[in-house]
Design a protein around this nucleic acid. Sequence first.
DNA 1: GTAATTATTTGATTTAGGTCAAAAGTTCTG
DNA 2: CAGAACTTTTGACCTAAATCAAATAATTAC
Lengths: 193, 193
Amino acid sequence: MNKIKTTENIFTHFEKFIKLSENLKLELSKRIKPIVFQKGELVLDANNISKKSYFINKGILRTYFIKDGKEISEFFSGIDEWVNSPKSFMQREKDIYYIDAIEKTEAYFITVNDLVYLFDNFPEMERYARLSMGTIFGHFMERITSIRFTTAKEKYTHFQKTYSNIYHRIPLGMVASYLGITQETLSRIRAVK
Amino acid sequence: MNKIKTTENIFTHFEKFIKLSENLKLELSKRIKPIVFQKGELVLDANNISKKSYFINKGILRTYFIKDGKEISEFFSGIDEWVNSPKSFMQREKDIYYIDAIEKTEAYFITVNDLVYLFDNFPEMERYARLSMGTIFGHFMERITSIRFTTAKEKYTHFQKTYSNIYHRIPLGMVASYLGITQETLSRIRAVK
DNA sequence: GTAATTATTTGATTTAGGTCAAAAGTTCTG
DNA sequence: CAGAACTTTTGACCTAAATCAAATAATTAC
């Protein structure tokens, strides 16, 4: 009962974009495996190539990089989202991103090799990837706008909207670096209310 | 001789990502048409749905939106790049983006209907879309980093790098709004040298 | 359960870049 | 080619947020 759910969530996610044949479901099931990360655990070290993509069932993962010795959060990922180091994962080369668990996280994963197999044999998987990337695209554009033209206060409000279900579970310092403001400023913003 | 080149450029572009069969080349050729925009001409009005995607052969297009009565540049596109209003084009709904020509621009275009036909009949087109979006992804992430943590000067330097072949052809005011700084600040930055 | 970390808040001061205003340059257009 | 209409530059002043510094508060570990 307290065990990880079946592949139900992940299939539902795919079916937002494509119809899953029984055969594809079977091939997916063979390649998707559960995994659990404890709070604070490192999911990906930037010194390694990202070879797995994680689909979150519960918990929060954070993607970040190091600048001037400080951790800068790039994004946070919650339930029903895929997480990997995008460039590293697709080009099979190192990139700057680390991934860790902000809280205990239950996920599935698929390896890049298995994913490539599915792309090669199921054209609908290519479509899934194209369409799902499209939605992320929109978020990126919105974020760029939000960063460029708003006060620190507005940035924080936008963040709360974007991450409405998880924002209160993310430590202040991480949020500040995500927004590109100092944590002192963020602390003051939150104090005003 | 002074006429628009053949579909050569566009085929070369596709072949960076996939192998083009003779049949696909034929089907593409049937659906790709040339078009020319004069300097200052509006390519897309945000009151309309974006139904064509333009592949630039020569010239520069600008994608922008209006905020508080002012035009804010979202990106600039030069040779060998596709231009459309992404969300509008794929979801077939209105979005906030206008597109205009910064200089006289020669392009090809394909309609969203034709593109959908190709996606439905040529799985390699899905792959092309997935892979080419992947590269744009990387640029977006870099841009987000660049906007968040750099001084106005560094933002401008990054802009020059990103748009190394066209940056000097874009009016200062448009660059400033792209970078999220005022044009006075940009003017002063450029003056220092 | 208390010491030791780590995270957050508060205060004082500084500064990069914004705002407002006007002058100087450029480029369209009839 | 002259006047209108933009575009870019320059100057004076102001403000939001950064920086530096230290005090609290909250977790974590033994």
